[in-house]
């Protein structure tokens, strides 16, 4: 589903002494099927931005277009449309409430009047996508799982609605490195398999570099930079001004390029860890000559 923001602004607490402009004049277009990394300091407006995507917040000004649906300050998103946009909040495990894992994951799909058999199939599928064994966890209380498992259950709860757009607000916050990696891999897998449009909010440049094919950099409620990751990473100066860092791989390549003669320098488009390793190995394996 294509997503377009046209001059969107959002003001919290309009008309009170607590009035606060959280988003100002945001415009971008995300083609269907993209994996977008949204990055920025705490308080830059990331969470506010993504809550507009399924109509939880309405823009104070401007227009949002989701596929064929238009959202403005006066036009809400119809209820049936909500299931197309799967929104995973920060610390989603804080929203678990059912007696059993299976019931909790079923909450989303049941709200859209699906037949029971279909709901069960979806629950099973969703739990398996996030790497949990359906038979083992379905009857357990979600409150007795480990933190990482709870996070997975919560994620499954959104995936079970089978959204076309998946929006994740810092899904790895507070997890250990292993947990981070595996949850992101699961997300990336489903993004590819089901051809989702995915928006990942993160403040790790590494995470963005690894998965995103488009990036939005937010600063103080405006878009400071947007573009393909390699275009963003080229502007290392600007990123530093925004108190953000380029990923380690990019820093490594640029340091290496300073040492190499110009015609042998590495291309900027190599910034994913695996690609970089492959590239370097290829360079280093000197063809055997007689």
């Amino acid at each position: 589903m294509q997503i377009t923001f046209d001059q969107v602004s959002h003001i919290y607490g309009k008309g009170t002494p607590f009035e606060r402009v959280a988003l100002h004049d945001i415009s971008f277009t995300i083609p269907s099927g993209s994996f977008v990394g949204i990055i920025g300091q705490t308080g830059s407006g990331k969470s506010t931005l993504i809550q507009h995507l399924n109509g939880l917040l309405l823009p104070s000004a401007g227009t949002i277009t989701l596929g064929d649906t238009v959202i403005t300050s006066k036009q809400r998103l119809p209820h049936e449309q909500r299931r197309n946009i799967g929104l995973v909040f920060q610390y989603p495990e804080h929203q678990l409430f059912e007696e059993t894992v299976a019931k909790d994951v079923a909450f989303g799909p049941s709200n859209f009047d699906l037949p029971e058999a279909m709901v069960e199939a979806r629950v099973k599928e969703a739990l398996e996508i996030v790497g949990l064994d359906y038979e083992k966890v379905k009857d357990r209380s979600p409150f007795h799982l480990s933190g990482g498992q709870m996070r997975r259950v919560a994620l499954a709860g959104v995936l079970a609605m089978q959204p076309k757009v998946l929006v994740l607000d810092e899904p790895t916050a507070g997890l250990d490195p292993m947990g981070r990696q595996s949850i992101l891999e699961a997300i990336y897998r489903i993004h590819q398999e089901q051809k989702l449009t995915t928006l990942l909010v993160t403040h790790s440049m590494e995470e963005a570099a690894r998965y995103a094919d488009y990036m939005l950099v937010l600063a103080q409620g405006t878009i400071a930079l947007q573009g393909k990751p390699d275009e963003i990473f080229m502007q290392a100066e600007r990123l530093r001004e925004l108190a953000l860092d380029v990923p380690e791989t990019v820093a490594f390549v640029s340091r290496l390029n300073q040492l190499l003669p110009d015609k042998e320098s590495l291309p900027n488009s190599v910034y994913r860890e695996e690609e970089l390793i492959a590239h370097l190995l290829e360079r280093l394996s000197v063809p055997k000559e007689g």
């Binding site: 809550q51 939880l56 929104l87 909040f89 804080h94 909450f107 989303g108 709200n111 609605m161």
Partner: peptide, 16 residues
């Protein structure tokens, strides 16, 4: 704040 967040999260899961 917490209530607001939970309401939003459940709304996002289709609660009415």
């Amino acid at each position: 704040e917490e209530t607001d967040k939970i309401i939003k999260a459940q709304t996002a899961r289709g609660a009415n």
